[in-house]
Simulated scan of single mutants.
Amino acid sequence: MGRIVYVHGQFIAEEEARIGLFDRGFLFGDAVYEVTAVINGRMIDNDLHLARLQRSVNELAIPLPLPLEEIAAVQAELMARNDLRDGTIYLHVSRGEADRDFFYSEALAPRLVGFTQAKTLTGTRAQQNGISVDLADDPRWQRRDIKTAMLLGQVMAKQTARSRGFDDVWMVEAGLVTEGASATAHLITADGRILTRAASRTTLPGCTQRALARLCETEGLQIEERAFTPEEAQDAAEAFQTSASSLVMPVVKIGGRTVGDGKPGPMTRRLQALYLEAAGVPS
């Protein structure tokens, strides 16, 4: 038997899981999702992820299928049933099922799906050595602040970047970096300031980004929220990206140009250590 997944109120074997043909998430991408990291059997920043889930469904006028505390209980049960120690928990909320029509009824019952993915999140080769990111025009819609399941633009950008020999990709719009295809982009200046874009409809508000910002405030580290150009990124002293599944990931090459000396820098290493310490990961 494979994993136990959660589908519409039931914990069942993944082989038995079914999504309806007329689910609006399938037909229209009318759905939102969240991914929470699990390290040493503990959910990381889950309060931030559930709050973002609530915000996303509110922006699309999708009712939550369960109260947040019950969704957290579903996550905990998925961890227990799958004996998940390290990996991620994926949640997906669609508006519901109805015959295909652009217009939807407010009476639709939202659908909740959840599953776990076991994977190593800490101490990976990428986190030790850093990654390369390509630069690509941002093809996505204008409400990137909503964590929708419409990810085709990101899929295409990541696939193209990989075919070009890069590990990941940062998006560019109007001459400015927006964000990574599945991560928040950050720079570190020569004088030690941490640059990242301010919250807006242009980018997704990152949960790992917010958690790290809290730690930086405690440590007295300066964060400047503003947009930056690809050239500024390539000339930065250091660069990194954050996400639930990659945590604090050093970026050592951007668009074919080496960042700094081509190795994860001291500030990035400090931020990695701060985040892992806060997550309860032994050094």
Rank of each mutant, 00 (worst) to 15 (best):
R143W: 11
E277D: 15
Q209N: 10
P250G: 03
F115T: 04
W170E: 00
D167W: 08
L152F: 14
Q234S: 09
A239P: 07
S243F: 00
R226T: 11
V5Q: 06
R144T: 08
P282M: 10
V248F: 06
T258Q: 15
L221S: 01
P266R: 13
A279E: 07
I19Q: 09
E106I: 02
L247K: 02
V172N: 08
A161P: 12
L21C: 04
Q117S: 08
K158L: 15
A181H: 03
A213G: 03
N82Q: 12
D134G: 00
V113E: 01
G114T: 02
P266N: 07
A237E: 11
L91E: 10
S163Y: 03
R24Y: 09
T184W: 00
F240K: 03
N40V: 00
Q54V: 03
A185F: 09
T268I: 03
T88D: 04
M1D: 11
D134E: 14
L212A: 02
P250V: 05
N129H: 13
T178A: 10
Q10T: 09
R197D: 06
S243K: 00
I44V: 15
A73C: 06
V259N: 05
L84R: 08
D138I: 05
I223N: 03
G130W: 06
A199Q: 13
D145M: 10
R210V: 00
C216K: 01
D86V: 10
E106D: 13
R100C: 05
A157R: 15
G165K: 07
L91W: 10
A72L: 14
A136V: 03
V93C: 08
T218G: 14
V155W: 08
A31M: 14
P205F: 07
T202H: 12
R85E: 13
H49G: 04
D83R: 15
G255L: 03
A185S: 15
L187W: 11
W170M: 13
G123H: 10
F28K: 02
P250Y: 08
T203Q: 06
D45Q: 05
V93M: 04
V259A: 05
V252S: 04
E70I: 00
Q128E: 15
A190F: 11
S245C: 04
T208Y: 02
A157K: 13
V248S: 02
E238V: 09
T218I: 04
V259H: 04
G260L: 08
E179Q: 14
G153A: 06
A190V: 14
V177F: 02
A73W: 01
G41R: 07
T124S: 09
L151Y: 15
K119L: 13
L66K: 14
P63S: 09
L53S: 03
H186I: 01
N40G: 13
L135H: 02
E34M: 11
P205H: 12
L112H: 09
A31N: 14
D30P: 10
I194N: 11
G206Q: 05
S245E: 00
R162P: 00
Q142H: 14
V172W: 07
R52A: 07
M267L: 14
R162H: 13
I254P: 01
L276E: 09
E106F: 08
E70S: 12
G255W: 09
V35Q: 07
T258R: 14
R3M: 14
P266H: 06
L187C: 12
F22A: 13
R24G: 07
P63Y: 01
S132P: 10
M249E: 15
R95Q: 09
Q159Y: 06
L271D: 07
K119G: 01
